[in-house]
């Protein structure tokens, strides 16, 4: 593990107690920091909580939030919730797949963009909705996809 990663992970761990209930919050903090959960990070978290790494993997693979490969600089999430579905979310997703050349769950080769689908952002009244990093874009159309990507270059 490179010294920076080690230092950052130690900082995260120092804010948590050695309790099983802290596992998910630690994984969340580590992912927030590193963008995904590298193997060495998982091993160290397991050691800290005195759990076998298999148990940590078991938990982290159960939850959709956790990723095990690096993600792009910008994360684009497309809502596939009911309200967005009935208002044409699949068209928006298609357009993004076409523009970025990747499928949900994938990252562009230049590590610029990752694409994901999400169950609902709770902004259903503005369906269809996409979220780029932390910005919510409502009332999306396939046309707006290009504009948002262009504005984000």
């Amino acid at each position: 593990m490179n010294p920076d990663t080690k230092q950052e992970l130690d900082d995260i761990l120092s804010q948590h107690e050695i309790e099983r209930g802290e596992l998910i919050p630690i994984l969340q903090a580590a992912q927030e920091r590193f963008g995904y959960l590298p193997e060495e990070v998982i091993a160290k978290i397991a050691k800290f909580l005195q759990l076998p790494p298999s148990a940590v993997y078991g938990v982290s693979t159960f939850y959709a939030q956790f990723k095990f490969t690096p993600t792009g600089k910008k994360m684009i999430k497309v809502c596939r919730g009911t309200a967005c579905h009935v208002r044409g979310a699949s068209r928006i997703l298609q357009e993004l797949e076409k523009e970025l050349g990747i499928k949900p769950g994938e990252t562009t080769e230049d590590l610029e963009y990752s694409l994901e689908t999400i169950a609902c952002f709770g902004s259903c009244a503005l369906a269809p909705v996409i979220v780029v990093d932390k910005t919510v874009y409502g009332r999306m159309t396939p046309k707006k996809v290009g504009q948002i990507l262009a504005g984000n270059e």
């Binding site: 309790e19 099983r20 209930g21 802290e22 596992l23 998910i24 919050p25 994984l27 969340q28 078991g58 938990v59 159960f62 939850y63 959709a64 939030q65 956790f66 169950a119």
Partner: peptide, 24 residues
């Protein structure tokens, strides 16, 4: 406690497992 993206964790016993740091 922040959820981690599993619909079933809205179910009460799954939610408790999740709070305990287990698979929900």
């Amino acid at each position: 406690k922040e959820g981690a993206g599993a619909f079933v964790c809205g179910e009460e016993t799954a939610m408790m497992a999740s709070i305990e740091g287990k698979r929900g």
